[in-house]
Every structure is written in structure tokens, then in C-alpha cells.
Design a protein around this nucleic acid. Structure first.
Length: 303
DNA sequence: CTTTAGACCTGGGTGC
DNA sequence: TGCACCCAGGTCTAAA
């Protein structure tokens, strides 16, 4: 469940359970997700206090205080394609003592397939990370090195922040001969959009996905009516999606088990063959493949 | 430099 | 029931 609105929903769901709490124990069931998990995860997390939860692009940022002289670190989490968190009541001290040191301390009744990491908090709450496809990632980065980190260094502006505007988008699209669909998926141009919200934004803006990116900016790289429209549309779609708790596909749910419902609001994504929902449009949604990803659009009202 | 194809994984759905 | 095949919310890497 991983575009910006879903990650933001996860952040908001986890925050009340995590912020200000201390990690009692960090348990890893396997050594890696997409990349190796941080070395000595438990030694580095146990006892640390969670200062707060943040987000950058599709990354969840778990801010950790450190005792003593060690530098503060951020536990950076990416959900990949299939990552999710859930909050569970811990099992208390009882049966933990019965298990071997280093064992994965999830009661059998609760352990689910693909539960890879558990953060056991001091107040008896387990934060469980589950990720069937393991495209997700976790890494520990010193707070001061976060922005310069290779994963963050080249990422574009936050679409809901002040750094995202028509002038900047126009500049980023200038000279790019890639389709606008692919350009908006490029995290260097704008952060946090994925396949769903790019399709939805282009549909709402009435812009054809095959249009070359450079055609949306003026020849001199200035903002145009379309660049401005795209900026506003992207913002609106993301804000609506966050307000709806994100989109819930397949069996994913939010951290407390409730479902986001923005998927009921899709006007294009995954609606191949169905009528276009743009006001006054009598077309239907088609599917094409761009850069290896499905694009859903209406050839009638997207120009 | 820009752009694309392949790679990484598991699971669900479809059609034979 | 089994099996082959396609598809899926991402993004890094190598190659063109």
C-alpha cells in the first residue's frame, strides 16, 4: 500500500502508538528485505525513544532519540509494493521467557506469514512490519545525513509542500522527451506519486498520458496553463486521497485494520472498459503500457 | 545526459 | 484439481 497518501495514512495511524515511546526490543525474522536490514538491529534500537514519525516522498521516517553521545538516527522505512504495518497488543513477559534467546517472539496464534520485523515497544505494543514481496526496505541513517543520503539526495519537492509549484514543475519538464506519465512517476521531478495517482491526476487534468513532458511547459521553460492545472490537480487528488485514508487494494488495510476508501473514487485507474467519469464525457477508459506500467486514461477527454 | 528493459519477490486471478 | 501465464501500489541497476 505504498504511494504518498498510503504512506501518510500509515504515518498517522502509527504515530499515536509510537511517538514518545521507547523501543524495548527489535526483532527481525530474516536478514533482509529488498536490502539487508541494519546490522545488529536490536542492539541499535532497544532502549531508544521514538521522538516522532515523519514522511518524505514514500518513505516513513521514524525519528529516534539517542542516549549519551551517539548521533540521533532515523529508521527509514519504504513499503515497496506490498509492505504494511499493523499494531498489536504485545504478549507480555509471560511466554517470552519460555522462548530461546533470539527467537522471534510472536505468539504462534498471532504470527502471520511474511511478518519480517517487529518493534516491541515498552508499553506492551507490537509494531509489526509485513511484506510478502519484500520490495520494502529499512535502514538506519544518522539524522544529519538524511538529506544527503543517496536515497533522498535527488528526490523532488513534496507535492503538498510549498516547494512544489508551476514554475518549478515547468522547469523540471523542460527538454524532457519522455511521456508526461513517465515523468510524473520519476521521483526526481515530484516526490511521492505512483501509478494510481499519476493516472488519476492526468485524467482529472484532461491531459493525455502520451504527451511529451516538454509540451506542458512553454518553449522557454516557463509555466503554462497546463502546468498550473497539473500542480493544482495533483495536490487536490493527494489531499482527497489522504482524507479518505488512502486507497485499499486487495487485502491491505490500515494499521488498525480499517480500510482506506479512495479506491471507490478512482475515475481512471483499474477501470479499463468502463465509462469515463469526467463530467460531460461519453468516452470510456482505455489501458496502455508505458515504461512497463499500465496507464488508464480516456482518449476522449484527455488531450 | 536521457530513456528503457530487466531484475528483484510472492500471490491472486484467469483460462485451458 | 492442476498448471501455465499475466498482472500487481516500486525503484535500483545495467545497457542502449
Amino acid at each position: 500500500m505504498p504511494e504518498l497518501p498510503e504512506v501518510e495514512t500509515v504515518r498517522r495511524g502509527l504515530a499515536p502508538a509510537m511517538e514518545g515511546r521507547r523501543i524495548r526490543e527489535a526483532l527481525a525474522r530474516r536478514p533482509d528485505l529488498r536490502w539487508p536490514l541494519p546490522e545488529r538491529l536490536n542492539e541499535r534500537l532497544a532502549g531508544r525513544r521514538i521522538a516522532g514519525l515523519g514522511r518524505r516522498a514514500k518513505y516513513l521516517l521514524i525519528d529516534l532519540d539517542s542516549d549519551a553521545a551517539a548521533a540521533n538516527e532515523v529508521l527509514v522505512v519504504h513499503l515497496g509494493m506490498s509492505g504494511s504495518f499493523r499494531i498489536e497488543a504485545g504478549d507480555g513477559a509471560g511466554d517470552r521467557a519460555a522462548e530461546a534467546p533470539g527467537a522471534f517472539h510472536i505468539p504462534r496464534s498471532k504470527a502471520a506469514a511474511h511478518d519480517h520485523v517487529v518493534l516491541r515497544l515498552e508499553h506492551g505494543v507490537d509494531i509489526v512490519y509485513n511484506d510478502p514481496r519484500r520490495f520494502g526496505a529499512m535502514l538506519l541513517v544518522p539524522r544529519t545525513e538524511l538529506e544527503a543520503h543517496p536515497l533522498f539526495r535527488d528526490i523532488g519537492p513534496e507535492p503538498l509542500g510549498n516547494g512544489f509549484d508551476a514554475a518549478g514543475l515547468a522547469k523540471a519538464l523542460t527538454g524532457r522527451r519522455t511521456p508526461i506519465k513517465a515523468a510524473l512517476l520519476d521521483q526526481k521531478i515530484v516526490a511521492g506519486l505512483g501509478n494510481i495517482y499519476v493516472c488519476e491526476a492526468l485524467h482529472r487534468a484532461g491531459i493525455a498520458p502520451e504527451r511529451l513532458a516538454l509540451t506542458l511547459a512553454s518553449p522557454t521553460g516557463r509555466a503554462t496553463r497546463e502546468t498550473r492545472l497539473l500542480v493544482e490537480t495533483i495536490r487536490a487528488v493527494l489531499e482527497e486521497a489522504i482524507a479518505a485514508g488512502g486507497s485499499t487494494l486487495r487485502d491491505h488495510s490500515q494499521v488498525d485494520g480499517t480500510l482506506g476508501y479512495f479506491q471507490h473514487t478512482f475515475r481512471a485507474y483499474d477501470r479499463e472498459g468502463q465509462p469515463c467519469l469526467a463530467p460531460g464525457c461519453h468516452g470510456s477508459i482505455a489501458r496502455l503500457v508505458q515504461a512497463g506500467r499500465s496507464t488508464f486514461y480516456c482518449a476522449s477527454c484527455q488531450r
